[in-house]
Write a protein that binds this DNA or RNA. Structure first.
Lengths: 78, 78
DNA sequence: CGTGTAAGGAATTCTGACACG
DNA sequence: CGTGTAAGGAATTCTGACACG
């Protein structure tokens, strides 16, 4: 039953921003586009996992390569 | 050069409190006693690693077993 | 000694919107 | 479309102190 560390949602957006080099705006936008799914604290603060950070960096790379968020969403279940 | 995830200081005290079941007061006290060494954000907010969380739980267990923080500090370099 | 708490301030995050295009 | 920004409020964290003992 213990969840692997990579999937534990414990990191706040400020740290994610530092680790990825992306703006909080970008990170929140990817969530808006249904590409990342952070948890929320009782107060509504977003919590990400290390896996989410990987995903976010991947999203940004693909956007840089010309993809659109809608296409990335389609690619999800593959 | 990449640091292992277990040592990345990215978790704030609120989450550490949830994961360990300890109060923030207790967690801060262990730092005061030089038993844990979180990083700090520019604004002074504490950031812990998964390894720190292990350490904190271990400290609390030992305190429960009758040890004192001073003794735990001595045990550190062994 | 190790921990609880009330106190006031500061850092961090949140949302919705306007902007560009 | 994807991202920047200013705006105001809310959640979270910080420190130093008093308390018990």
């Amino acid at each position: 039953m213990p969840m692997s560390m990579t999937k534990k949602k414990v990191i706040q957006i400020g740290v994610v921003s530092e680790l990825t080099g992306l703006s909080e705006r970008q990170i929140r936008y990817y969530e808006d586009r249904k590409l990342v799914f952070p948890d929320r604290s009782k107060g509504g603060v977003r919590k990400y996992s290390f896996e989410d950070i990987q995903t976010i960096m991947d999203i940004h790379t693909k956007l840089t390569n010309g993809y659109h968020t809608v296409e990335l969403k389609r690619m999800l279940g593959c």
